[in-house]
Amino acid sequence: MFNLEQTLAFVTTVEEGSFSAAARKLQKSQSSVSIGVSNLEDELDIELFDRNTRKPTLTEAGNRLYHQAKLLLRQADKMNSYALAINNEVESKVVIGTDPAAPLSCLDSILLKIDREFPNTEVEIRLLNHLSLQQALLDHTVDLGIHFGADAYPQYLNFASIHQYKWLCVCSPDYSLASLDIISNEELLAARQIICESMLHHPVLSKTSIFSQDTWQADNLTQCSHLIELGLGWGILPSDWCAERFELGSLITIEPEFNQTQMHSALDFVWASNRNIGKVCRTIIEHFTVQKSSHI
Protein backbone atom coordinates (compact mmCIF):
# COMPACT_ATOMS: atom_id res chain seq x y z
CA MET A 1 0.00 0.00 0.00
CA PHE A 2 1.41 3.42 -0.94
CA ASN A 3 2.11 5.93 1.80
CA LEU A 4 2.10 9.70 2.29
CA GLU A 5 5.87 9.94 1.94
CA GLN A 6 5.68 8.45 -1.56
CA THR A 7 2.79 10.74 -2.41
CA LEU A 8 4.73 13.78 -1.19
CA ALA A 9 7.75 12.78 -3.29
CA PHE A 10 5.48 12.52 -6.35
CA VAL A 11 3.74 15.88 -5.83
CA THR A 12 6.98 17.71 -5.02
CA THR A 13 8.69 16.29 -8.13
CA VAL A 14 5.83 17.59 -10.28
CA GLU A 15 5.87 21.03 -8.68
CA GLU A 16 9.66 21.42 -8.60
CA GLY A 17 10.18 20.03 -12.12
CA SER A 18 12.80 17.36 -11.39
CA PHE A 19 13.83 14.68 -8.92
CA SER A 20 16.91 16.66 -7.90
CA ALA A 21 14.90 19.83 -7.22
CA ALA A 22 12.34 17.83 -5.24
CA ALA A 23 15.15 16.26 -3.20
CA ARG A 24 16.49 19.72 -2.33
CA LYS A 25 13.01 20.89 -1.35
CA LEU A 26 12.39 17.83 0.84
CA GLN A 27 15.98 17.79 2.14
CA LYS A 28 16.45 14.21 1.03
CA SER A 29 18.74 12.43 -1.40
CA GLN A 30 17.75 12.32 -5.05
CA SER A 31 17.78 8.55 -5.01
CA SER A 32 15.28 8.37 -2.11
CA VAL A 33 12.87 10.67 -3.95
CA SER A 34 13.24 8.72 -7.20
CA ILE A 35 12.77 5.40 -5.38
CA GLY A 36 9.70 6.78 -3.57
CA VAL A 37 8.06 7.75 -6.85
CA SER A 38 8.98 4.39 -8.45
CA ASN A 39 7.51 2.52 -5.51
CA LEU A 40 4.32 4.58 -5.83
CA GLU A 41 4.12 3.65 -9.52
CA ASP A 42 4.58 -0.03 -8.61
CA GLU A 43 1.89 0.15 -5.92
CA LEU A 44 -0.59 1.81 -8.29
CA ASP A 45 0.57 -0.17 -11.34
CA ILE A 46 0.54 3.10 -13.27
CA GLU A 47 3.36 4.99 -14.98
CA LEU A 48 3.24 8.51 -13.57
CA PHE A 49 6.14 10.07 -15.52
CA ASP A 50 7.42 9.75 -19.06
CA ARG A 51 11.13 9.26 -18.44
CA ASN A 52 12.09 9.48 -22.11
CA THR A 53 12.19 13.27 -21.83
CA ARG A 54 15.07 15.31 -20.33
CA LYS A 55 12.94 16.17 -17.32
CA PRO A 56 10.23 13.91 -15.89
CA THR A 57 6.98 14.71 -17.68
CA LEU A 58 3.60 13.63 -16.38
CA THR A 59 1.72 11.02 -18.33
CA GLU A 60 -2.00 11.51 -18.84
CA ALA A 61 -2.73 9.15 -15.96
CA GLY A 62 -0.04 10.84 -13.86
CA ASN A 63 -1.65 14.23 -14.42
CA ARG A 64 -5.00 12.94 -13.17
CA LEU A 65 -3.46 11.30 -10.13
CA TYR A 66 -1.39 14.40 -9.35
CA HIS A 67 -4.56 16.36 -8.53
CA GLN A 68 -5.84 13.52 -6.35
CA ALA A 69 -2.49 13.30 -4.59
CA LYS A 70 -2.59 17.02 -3.76
CA LEU A 71 -6.05 16.58 -2.23
CA LEU A 72 -4.78 13.63 -0.20
CA LEU A 73 -1.84 15.64 1.18
CA ARG A 74 -4.11 18.57 1.98
CA GLN A 75 -6.46 16.27 3.87
CA ALA A 76 -3.55 14.78 5.78
CA ASP A 77 -2.39 18.28 6.78
CA LYS A 78 -5.91 19.04 7.91
CA MET A 79 -6.01 15.91 10.08
CA ASN A 80 -2.72 16.91 11.70
CA SER A 81 -4.06 20.41 12.33
CA TYR A 82 -7.25 19.06 13.89
CA ALA A 83 -5.28 16.72 16.13
CA LEU A 84 -3.02 19.57 17.21
CA ALA A 85 -6.06 21.75 17.94
CA ILE A 86 -7.62 19.01 20.10
CA ASN A 87 -4.40 18.56 22.05
CA ASN A 88 -4.20 22.34 22.60
CA GLU A 89 -7.82 22.52 23.90
CA VAL A 90 -9.02 24.47 20.89
CA GLU A 91 -12.79 24.33 20.42
CA SER A 92 -14.03 22.51 17.34
CA LYS A 93 -16.97 24.95 17.21
CA VAL A 94 -17.78 28.39 18.63
CA VAL A 95 -21.32 29.81 18.70
CA ILE A 96 -21.58 33.60 18.56
CA GLY A 97 -24.86 35.38 19.26
CA THR A 98 -25.49 38.89 17.98
CA ASP A 99 -28.32 41.39 18.22
CA PRO A 100 -30.38 41.43 14.98
CA ALA A 101 -30.33 45.25 15.11
CA ALA A 102 -26.52 45.38 15.07
CA PRO A 103 -24.65 45.56 11.74
CA LEU A 104 -22.90 42.29 10.91
CA SER A 105 -19.66 44.28 10.70
CA CYS A 106 -19.67 44.25 14.52
CA LEU A 107 -18.37 40.66 14.22
CA ASP A 108 -15.53 41.51 11.83
CA SER A 109 -12.68 41.57 14.34
CA ILE A 110 -13.89 38.35 16.03
CA LEU A 111 -14.28 36.43 12.77
CA LEU A 112 -10.97 37.61 11.32
CA LYS A 113 -9.15 36.64 14.51
CA ILE A 114 -10.70 33.14 14.56
CA ASP A 115 -9.98 32.62 10.87
CA ARG A 116 -6.37 33.74 11.29
CA GLU A 117 -5.49 32.00 14.56
CA PHE A 118 -7.90 29.04 14.68
CA PRO A 119 -8.68 28.02 11.06
CA ASN A 120 -10.04 24.59 12.07
CA THR A 121 -12.68 25.97 14.43
CA GLU A 122 -16.20 26.02 13.02
CA VAL A 123 -18.21 29.21 13.65
CA GLU A 124 -21.99 29.45 14.01
CA ILE A 125 -23.67 32.88 14.15
CA ARG A 126 -27.11 33.22 15.75
CA LEU A 127 -29.31 36.32 15.73
CA LEU A 128 -30.87 36.69 19.18
CA ASN A 129 -32.57 39.59 20.91
CA HIS A 130 -31.16 41.06 24.11
CA LEU A 131 -32.94 38.80 26.62
CA SER A 132 -32.68 35.61 24.55
CA LEU A 133 -28.97 36.16 24.00
CA GLN A 134 -28.28 36.68 27.70
CA GLN A 135 -30.23 33.53 28.60
CA ALA A 136 -28.40 31.53 25.91
CA LEU A 137 -25.07 32.66 27.37
CA LEU A 138 -26.17 31.63 30.87
CA ASP A 139 -27.45 28.29 29.52
CA HIS A 140 -24.10 27.81 27.72
CA THR A 141 -25.79 27.26 24.34
CA VAL A 142 -24.01 30.38 23.03
CA ASP A 143 -20.31 30.95 23.75
CA LEU A 144 -19.89 34.66 23.04
CA GLY A 145 -22.39 37.46 22.48
CA ILE A 146 -22.63 40.98 21.10
CA HIS A 147 -25.61 43.23 21.79
CA PHE A 148 -26.50 46.81 22.66
CA GLY A 149 -25.70 47.54 26.29
CA ALA A 150 -28.20 47.83 29.11
CA ASP A 151 -28.12 49.40 32.56
CA ALA A 152 -27.53 46.11 34.40
CA TYR A 153 -26.45 42.56 33.66
CA PRO A 154 -27.49 39.29 35.32
CA GLN A 155 -25.09 37.57 37.68
CA TYR A 156 -22.33 35.58 35.94
CA LEU A 157 -22.39 37.72 32.79
CA ASN A 158 -19.31 39.83 32.08
CA PHE A 159 -19.10 42.49 29.39
CA ALA A 160 -16.80 44.94 27.64
CA SER A 161 -18.04 47.86 25.52
CA ILE A 162 -16.42 47.55 22.10
CA HIS A 163 -18.12 50.19 19.97
CA GLN A 164 -20.31 53.27 20.26
CA TYR A 165 -23.10 53.49 17.69
CA LYS A 166 -24.89 56.68 16.75
CA TRP A 167 -28.54 56.18 15.79
CA LEU A 168 -29.99 58.14 12.87
CA CYS A 169 -33.57 58.81 11.84
CA VAL A 170 -33.82 57.87 8.16
CA CYS A 171 -36.27 57.32 5.34
CA SER A 172 -36.32 56.81 1.59
CA PRO A 173 -35.80 59.95 -0.56
CA ASP A 174 -39.28 59.26 -1.98
CA TYR A 175 -41.01 58.98 1.39
CA SER A 176 -43.49 61.70 2.41
CA LEU A 177 -41.32 62.92 5.31
CA ALA A 178 -38.23 63.38 3.12
CA SER A 179 -39.21 66.84 1.87
CA LEU A 180 -39.73 68.33 5.34
CA ASP A 181 -36.93 70.35 6.97
CA ILE A 182 -38.16 69.74 10.52
CA ILE A 183 -40.71 67.04 11.29
CA SER A 184 -43.13 67.75 14.12
CA ASN A 185 -43.85 65.15 16.75
CA GLU A 186 -47.44 64.93 15.49
CA GLU A 187 -46.30 64.21 11.92
CA LEU A 188 -43.87 61.58 13.12
CA LEU A 189 -46.45 60.01 15.39
CA ALA A 190 -48.78 59.58 12.43
CA ALA A 191 -46.11 58.16 10.10
CA ARG A 192 -45.35 54.45 10.05
CA GLN A 193 -42.11 53.45 11.80
CA ILE A 194 -40.17 50.37 10.70
CA ILE A 195 -38.50 48.76 13.69
CA CYS A 196 -36.25 45.80 14.29
CA GLU A 197 -38.13 43.27 16.41
CA SER A 198 -35.25 42.93 18.88
CA MET A 199 -35.72 46.58 19.93
CA LEU A 200 -39.05 45.63 21.51
CA HIS A 201 -37.26 43.37 24.00
CA HIS A 202 -34.40 45.72 24.83
CA PRO A 203 -34.72 47.51 28.20
CA VAL A 204 -33.29 50.76 26.82
CA LEU A 205 -34.00 50.82 23.07
CA SER A 206 -37.66 49.89 23.60
CA LYS A 207 -38.10 53.17 25.51
CA THR A 208 -35.94 55.48 23.41
CA SER A 209 -36.23 54.24 19.82
CA ILE A 210 -39.92 53.42 19.28
CA PHE A 211 -41.97 56.53 18.66
CA SER A 212 -44.80 56.05 16.17
CA GLN A 213 -48.15 54.45 16.97
CA ASP A 214 -48.18 52.76 13.56
CA THR A 215 -45.29 50.28 13.36
CA TRP A 216 -44.12 47.48 11.14
CA GLN A 217 -41.62 44.97 12.51
CA ALA A 218 -38.79 43.14 10.79
CA ASP A 219 -36.63 40.29 12.09
CA ASN A 220 -33.26 41.90 11.50
CA LEU A 221 -31.43 45.02 10.37
CA THR A 222 -31.26 43.98 6.70
CA GLN A 223 -35.04 43.45 6.46
CA CYS A 224 -35.74 46.62 8.42
CA SER A 225 -33.53 48.70 6.13
CA HIS A 226 -35.10 47.15 3.03
CA LEU A 227 -38.62 48.14 4.08
CA ILE A 228 -37.49 51.70 4.75
CA GLU A 229 -35.71 51.90 1.39
CA LEU A 230 -38.96 50.76 -0.28
CA GLY A 231 -40.64 53.85 1.18
CA LEU A 232 -42.92 51.91 3.52
CA GLY A 233 -42.01 54.00 6.56
CA TRP A 234 -39.22 55.71 8.46
CA GLY A 235 -36.83 54.17 10.97
CA ILE A 236 -33.95 54.60 13.38
CA LEU A 237 -30.80 52.78 12.22
CA PRO A 238 -27.11 52.65 13.28
CA SER A 239 -24.99 55.24 11.47
CA ASP A 240 -22.38 52.64 10.41
CA TRP A 241 -25.07 50.71 8.56
CA CYS A 242 -26.46 53.81 6.87
CA ALA A 243 -23.21 55.22 5.47
CA GLU A 244 -23.11 53.08 2.31
CA ARG A 245 -26.84 53.59 1.69
CA PHE A 246 -26.42 57.36 1.94
CA GLU A 247 -23.79 57.15 -0.81
CA LEU A 248 -26.10 55.02 -2.96
CA GLY A 249 -28.95 57.47 -2.37
CA SER A 250 -31.36 54.84 -1.07
CA LEU A 251 -31.62 56.47 2.36
CA ILE A 252 -31.50 60.03 3.70
CA THR A 253 -31.51 61.44 7.24
CA ILE A 254 -34.53 63.28 8.59
CA GLU A 255 -34.72 65.76 11.50
CA PRO A 256 -37.61 65.03 13.87
CA GLU A 257 -38.60 67.67 16.39
CA PHE A 258 -38.02 65.27 19.29
CA ASN A 259 -34.46 64.45 18.24
CA GLN A 260 -32.68 67.47 19.68
CA THR A 261 -29.66 65.50 20.87
CA GLN A 262 -27.78 62.69 19.19
CA MET A 263 -28.75 59.16 20.22
CA HIS A 264 -25.93 56.76 21.04
CA SER A 265 -25.77 53.14 22.21
CA ALA A 266 -22.78 51.13 23.35
CA LEU A 267 -22.29 47.76 21.71
CA ASP A 268 -21.19 45.29 24.37
CA PHE A 269 -19.22 42.08 24.05
CA VAL A 270 -20.73 39.61 26.57
CA TRP A 271 -19.71 36.22 27.96
CA ALA A 272 -20.56 33.95 30.88
CA SER A 273 -18.04 33.75 33.71
CA ASN A 274 -19.47 30.57 35.30
CA ARG A 275 -18.24 28.07 32.72
CA ASN A 276 -15.08 26.47 31.43
CA ILE A 277 -14.05 27.94 28.12
CA GLY A 278 -11.58 26.87 25.47
CA LYS A 279 -8.64 28.60 23.90
CA VAL A 280 -10.61 30.32 21.12
CA CYS A 281 -13.05 32.00 23.49
CA ARG A 282 -10.27 32.92 25.92
CA THR A 283 -8.31 34.57 23.11
CA ILE A 284 -11.34 36.60 21.96
CA ILE A 285 -12.21 37.66 25.53
CA GLU A 286 -8.63 38.75 26.17
CA HIS A 287 -8.63 40.67 22.89
CA PHE A 288 -11.66 42.74 23.86
CA THR A 289 -10.86 43.20 27.54
CA VAL A 290 -7.30 44.34 26.74
CA GLN A 291 -8.73 46.60 24.03
CA LYS A 292 -11.17 48.10 26.53
CA SER A 293 -8.52 48.71 29.21
CA SER A 294 -6.16 50.33 26.70
CA HIS A 295 -8.85 52.89 25.85
CA ILE A 296 -9.44 53.89 29.48
Rank of each mutant, 00 (worst) to 15 (best):
F2Y: 10
F2S: 07
N3A: 09
N3Q: 11
L4R: 06
E5T: 15
E5H: 12
Q6A: 08
T7A: 02
T7E: 07
L8D: 00
L8T: 02
A9F: 07
F10H: 04
E15Q: 11
F19V: 04
A21Y: 06
L26S: 05
L26E: 00
Q27C: 11
K28M: 11
S29E: 05
V33N: 02
V33K: 02
V33L: 08
S34M: 08
I35D: 00
N39D: 02
L40E: 00
L40Y: 01
D42N: 08
E43Q: 14
L44Y: 03
D45Y: 09
L48W: 03
F49P: 01
D50P: 01
R54S: 10
K55S: 13
P56G: 06
A61D: 12
G62C: 07
H67D: 09
Q68V: 11
A69H: 06
K70H: 04
L73Y: 06
Q75L: 14
M79A: 10
N80C: 14
Y82S: 07
A85G: 06
I86E: 12
N88K: 14
V90Q: 11
S92Y: 15
T98H: 08
T98M: 13
P100R: 03
P100D: 04
C106I: 11
L107D: 10
S109D: 13
I110P: 02
L112N: 11
L112S: 12
D115P: 09
E117N: 13
P119R: 05
P119Y: 01
T121K: 03
T121C: 07
E122H: 14
V123S: 10
E124K: 12
E124P: 09
H130C: 12
Q135I: 10
L138F: 08
D143K: 06
D143Y: 01
F148H: 04
G149N: 07
A150W: 05
D151F: 10
V170I: 13
D174W: 15
S176I: 14
A178R: 05
S184I: 13
E186T: 07
A190Y: 10
A191P: 00
R192C: 13
R192Q: 09
I195K: 03
M199R: 06
L200P: 04
L200S: 08
L200D: 01
P203W: 05
V204R: 03
I210H: 01
I210K: 10
Q213G: 09
D219L: 14
N220D: 03
T222S: 11
C224P: 07
C224K: 02
L227W: 04
I228R: 02
L232W: 11
W234D: 00
W234C: 02
G235K: 06
I236W: 03
L237R: 03
P238F: 07
P238K: 08
D240E: 15
E244D: 09
F246K: 04
L248M: 12
L248W: 06
I252T: 10
I254N: 03
I254K: 02
E255F: 15
Q260N: 07
Q260W: 02
M263K: 15
S265C: 11
S265W: 02
S265D: 03
S265R: 08
A266L: 15
L267I: 06
D268L: 05
F269D: 00
I277V: 14
G278S: 04
C281I: 03
R282Q: 09
R282K: 14
I285M: 01
E286R: 10
H287K: 13
F288A: 00
F288H: 01
T289Q: 12
Q291Y: 15
K292A: 11
S294A: 11
